[in-house]
Design a protein around this nucleic acid. Structure first.
Lengths: 168, 168
DNA sequence: CCGCTGGTGTTGAGAGTTCAACCACCGTTA
DNA sequence: TAACGGTGGTTGAACTCTCAACACCAGCGG
C-alpha cells in the first residue's frame, strides 16, 4: 500500500471545496425538510419516487433502487411512513415473496405540502448561485461519478466470478 | 406559497444527476471507511482536522466548525473517539468553559492507517473519472454553493436583528 | 458585588441508519 | 419430488445523528 497516489495541493483544494459544499448543503436541505415537513430527505425521496410511478406504487426492491436506499433502510423507512398513513404495503401478485408499496392520498398530500419549500431551497442554493455553464458541467460531473460507481460494482461482480469461476 | 419557481425538465435532470451522484458517492466512501477502518467518515474528518492543527489539538468549537459538525454531534463523536484512545480532552487554559481536543499517538496511527484507502477511493471515483476542466468547475461550484449557504446564515442573522432591533 | 446576557460544551431521549442474521419463496437441477 | 442456490424482504441490536434542555462560565452593566 505504499504506492498510494496522494492528492496534490490543487487536488486537495478541489476535494475540500466539493466535500464542504456537499456536506453543508445536504445538511441544509435535510434540516429544512425536517423542520417544515417532519421527515428526513430520504423519506421525501421515497414519496417522490412513488408519486412518479405508475399507479403510484412500486415493488420494494425497485423502490429501494430508485430512491438510492438499501433494502434494510427502505424497510424501516416504509414502516415509519406506514405508521404515518402515507404509504401502504400489499402483497405483490405473482410472487409471494414480494411486497408492493403504494402511496396513499394522505401521503400524496404530505408530498404536495413538502414540495414547495424543498424546491425553493434547491433553487436558491443551486440554480440561483451557479451559471448555466456550471450547471451543465454539474450534470456531466454527476453522470460521470455515477457511472464510475456502477462500473465499480460491475467490476466487483466480474472479479467475484473470476475468483469463483464455477459459481454460475 | 403559490409562486414557487418549479424546476424545468432540464433543471430536474441536473438536480437528479447531482443528487444521485452525491448520495451514492458519500454512501460509498462512508462504507469504505467503516469497513476498512471501523469509523464513519465524520470521525475521519475530525481526525484529519486535528492532525492538521498546530500541536494536533483544537478547541471543541473550532473543531466543530472545521469538521462541518454540530456541537452536539462533535461531543458524541469525541466521546466515542476518546473511548478508542484516539483523542483526549483537556481543559482549555484561560477559559474554564472550554475544552481542547488533542489527537493521541494511537489516533494519529489510526488516521495514517485509514488514509491510503480513503485517498484511493476518492481518486478513483473523482479524479480518475473527471476531466481537468470539470475538476476546475467542480471547485468553483463547491465554492459558490458554500458561499450561498453562509450568505444565507448572514441574511438570517440580519433578519433576526430586523425583527428584534433592540436585541443588541 | 450581583444580575444578566451570551457563549461553550454536555447530556438524554428519540429518530434514523447499518450490519448481519434470518425467513420465506422462486427457479433450476437431479 | 426433493434439494439447492439465489432473490425479496424483514428484523433486532448497535451505532450515529438531531434536537431540546441543561449546566457552567465569561464579560458587561448597574
Amino acid at each position: 500500500m505504499d504506492d498510494v497516489r496522494w492528492l496534490s495541493a490543487e487536488e486537495q483544494e478541489i476535494w475540500r471545496a466539493y466535500l464542504s459544499a456537499s456536506v453543508a448543503f445536504s445538511a441544509h436541505i435535510d434540516r429544512q425538510m425536517r423542520q417544515d415537513s417532519g421527515m428526513p430527505m430520504a423519506y421525501y425521496e421515497i414519496l417522490v419516487r412513488l408519486s412518479e410511478a405508475p399507479r403510484r406504487r412500486l415493488r420494494m426492491s425497485e423502490l429501494a433502487d430508485v430512491s438510492l436506499s438499501s433494502r434494510s433502510r427502505l424497510s424501516h423507512a416504509v414502516a415509519a411512513l406506514e405508521r404515518n398513513g402515507w404509504v401502504e404495503r400489499r402483497p405483490a401478485d405473482g410472487d409471494r415473496r414480494g411486497w408492493v408499496c403504494a402511496l396513499t392520498e394522505d401521503g400524496y398530500a404530505a408530498l404536495a405540502a413538502a414540495a414547495p419549500g424543498h424546491v425553493t431551497t434547491v433553487r436558491e442554493h443551486i440554480f440561483d448561485v451557479l451559471t448555466p455553464e456550471q450547471l451543465a458541467t454539474l450534470r456531466d460531473i454527476g453522470l460521470a461519478i455515477s457511472a464510475g460507481l456502477s462500473q465499480e460494482c460491475a467490476a466487483a461482480r466480474a472479479e467475484d466470478e473470476q475468483a469463483d469461476p464455477y459459481a454460475g
